[in-house]
């Protein structure tokens, strides 16, 4: 059995919950895996710190929470600071280079940055930054297959925005850190 524990953090309104929903859906519906997604939120409806988590497994997910993460996606400085300690040694850190600027030592991790929000703005909509990040995560951390991720994205966003979201996915997937 293989198991992958993913933590996603950012602030409310970035589509953090949707991102983990899409990952979970891609894994369990389109990749024939099992997955369990849980979320943490405060009483406020908008803003504030926000995090969610997905466990992907080849068998039933027993323990649904992420105490130690294999992959950490950080879309805010606060999320990075809060959750970096739970990223396990050798784990993968993916972060938005424009939103996470004060970096700690990454010598125990594989750290990869992408200006996801800036790339999304270049596509015309800042709101698809999370999808850019999903594309990046699909390529760099191989959390699910690219086909499954694309299907799950198409299934989870309003139909008139599918093209935009596919472009966002591609932008993230093709992004090369050394560019």
């Amino acid at each position: 059995m293989s198991e992958l524990r993913v933590k996603i953090s950012g602030f409310g309104g970035q589509g953090i919950i949707l991102s983990s929903f899409i990952i979970g859906k891609a894994a369990s519906i389109y990749d024939q895996q099992h997955s369990s997604m849980t979320q943490a939120y405060g009483p406020e409806a908008r803003g504030g710190a926000c995090s969610s988590q997905v466990v992907i497994s080849s068998d039933n997910v027993e323990y649904p929470l992420v105490d130690t993460a294999d992959v950490l996606i950080a879309m805010s400085q606060e999320g990075y600071d809060t959750f970096l300690p739970i990223l396990k040694k050798g784990g993968i850190l993916l972060y938005d280079t424009d939103l996470v600027e004060k970096l700690q030592s990454h010598k125990n991790f594989i750290a990869k940055g992408i200006p996801a929000t800036r790339l999304a703005e270049e596509l015309g909509k800042k709101i698809v930054a999370n999808i850019v990040m999903l594309g990046f995560a699909t390529k760099q951390a191989k959390i699910v297959s690219p086909e499954a991720m694309q299907e799950a994205i198409a299934d989870s966003v309003p139909s008139k925005f599918i093209d935009l979201n596919m472009k966002a996915f591609q932008a993230g997937y093709d992004y090369n850190e050394e560019q």
């Binding site: 929903f21 979970g24 369990s28 519906i29 099992h34 997955s35 369990s36 997604m37 849980t38 979320q39 997910v61 649904p64």
Partner: peptide, 9 residues
């Protein structure tokens, strides 16, 4: 609340 707010297949 954990089962209620958990998303799975």
């Amino acid at each position: 609340a954990l089962v209620g707010h958990m998303t799975e297949k």
